[in-house]
């Protein structure tokens, strides 16, 4: 039980730390009526939510609930069957270049090339975002420090552990300082210490960046997010501030609430 290590001490929830961050009312991500069919099978149905600038939204749900599908649509990898998704006011389908410039995306499987060194991978990813020339080195140093991968920069990615690959993927998503970060299960495969580091990092990123983070680990939500969106079988079953959600179900732990919501 990896999460158990961090439970008792960190229970005075992050809500405090987070409440201090001034939140703008500007909507960064707006999703309405989003539906995606894979052939005839609906992966998500009528998903609607919006995220304000600087907010950290936890996307919670059992495996196969449609978390990744929603995130892939937001990142512009796949189109929606119905509905719209907007980032900073731009539609992801109509003006993909505008939205992609503002998004850093870490998919479920970090998209890194095993045959490249970490540095080369980051140089490549930076070039895709149009970062070259004199700013390139500084930017790579910055994200490498943030993701704590400075010690492995010249190693081939194929020789790295899963945790490091995950962090290379995270560093890659941070390149160019995007407004919106979409992180699909960013702590999978990390050891407890790394999990804490990444959660800490995500908390720091909030306020400045808008973060959407998917997970099926409940602890992660309590530790990093202010707001939680619970999805089950492709539908949104709860969209609340974390403290409101627990207030609505008095006497229940988050786990019980989660099981209750997703069972419907």
């Amino acid at each position: 039980m990896v999460e158990a290590t961090s439970t008792p001490t960190s229970q005075p929830p992050p809500a405090q730390g987070v409440a201090g961050i001034p939140q703008s009312s500007q909507v960064m991500v707006e999703v309405s009526g989003l539906t995606k069919f894979y052939r005839d099978v609906p992966a998500i149905q009528d998903v609607s939510f919006s995220v304000r600038k600087g907010e950290i939204l936890g996307f919670l749900g059992p495996n196969g609930a449609g978390k990744s599908t929603t995130m892939r649509i937001l990142a512009g990898c796949i189109p929606a069957s119905r509905g719209t998704a907007k980032i900073a006011g731009f539609d992801v389908f109509e003006s993909p270049m505008e939205t992609k410039r503002r998004v850093g995306y870490l998919p479920e499987i970090p998209p890194v090339h095993p045959d490249l060194s970490v540095r080369d991978q980051l140089i490549f990813a930076a070039s895709l975002k149009g970062i070259t020339g004199p700013t390139l080195k500084d930017e790579i140093d910055r994200v490498a420090r943030r993701a704590v991968i400075t010690s492995v920069m010249d190693r081939l990615i194929q020789n790295l552990s899963k945790g490091y690959r995950q962090r290379v993927g995270l560093a890659q998503a941070l390149l160019g300082d995007p407004d919106v970060l979409i992180l699909d299960e960013p702590t999978v495969g990390l050891d407890p210490r790394q999990i804490n580091e990444v959660r800490e990092l995500i908390r720091e990123l909030g306020g400045h960046h808008t973060v959407i983070l998917s997970t099926h680990i409940l602890q992660e939500v309590t530790m990093t997010c202010q707001r939680v969106l619970v999805v089950a079988e492709g539908k949104v079953v709860a969209d609340d501030q974390l403290k409101d959600l627990t207030a609505k179900h008095p006497g229940k732990s988050l786990e019980e609430i989660f099981l209750h919501l997703t069972a419907q």
Binding site: A75, G76, K100, R101, P111, V112, H113, K129, Q172
Partner: peptide, 12 residues
């Protein structure tokens, strides 16, 4: 290997 997702999600 799903590295295509980097290309597809980048402004390229």
């Amino acid at each position: 290997t799903r590295t295509m997702e980097l290309l597809l999600s980048s402004p390229v």
